[in-house]
Nucleic acid binder design. Structure first.
Lengths: 111, 111
DNA sequence: CAGCATCCAAAACGATACTG
DNA sequence: CAGTATCGTTTTGGATGCTG
């Protein structure tokens, strides 16, 4: 409590509280849903778009870039024609599984 | 995957996926921080405002009302002068502790 | 103390159209 | 396929001032 937030040279928030860190790294509601999908395995852009109902390409791209920047997902491009892009989780990202699993439990219990 | 979202008679989203349920119930970033505080025990409005740095009275009220509506927190008013209001967690709210705890672990490990 | 009301700025998001 | 670009709407939330 009483955590401090300061800005670094990139004008990005440097958050001291652990919970804020997680929220900052995940970023948005969409990211949770992306994670939910990627825990099941590697997915392509269009697969994510289909699985996460209601997400626009823009929102999906934004969320994926955010997660990539925070070292949660890896973007792999295969130079085929047409291009194939796959998204997978880093170890840091895999480690979020416990949180998402707990959320699933809670949702199943109280939803 | 492929969860459906429909609207009920109150035009509120009825979400089928467990994770979406949790996100819907919690509602916002502020709610996570409110929960963080309330797991430590009952808190008053002003205590929450002081503990959660950067939150405006409006944002705090909004988040508390939201959590109240979803049966996560209880608002108790003591008719003293001046008024005293305490916020505490319901059992449903207490049950979110595992999630927040996992978030703390992750934040401590990777932050 | 514990808010509510108002106003306004910024950010998030949806729809749509287009590209390498 | 995997996006980007643009536009407009919605949501969010900060600032401020007021009240029982």
């Amino acid at each position: 409590m009483g955590e401090q937030s300061i800005e670094n040279q990139d004008s990005e928030l440097v958050v001291e509280c652990s919970i804020e860190k997680v929220l900052d790294v995940i970023g948005s509601k969409w990211s949770f849903l992306i994670l939910r999908e990627l825990f099941c395995g590697v997915k392509r852009f269009s697969e994510l778009q289909r699985a996460i109902q209601g997400v626009s390409p823009k929102a999906l791209t934004d969320a994926l870039r955010h997660l990539e920047k925070h070292d949660i997902v890896i973007r792999t491009v295969y130079p085929t024609v047409p291009v194939k892009v796959e998204y997978s989780l880093t170890e840091k990202g895999q480690d979020l599984h416990t949180i998402i699993k707990e959320m699933k439990y809670w949702g199943a219990k109280w939803g």
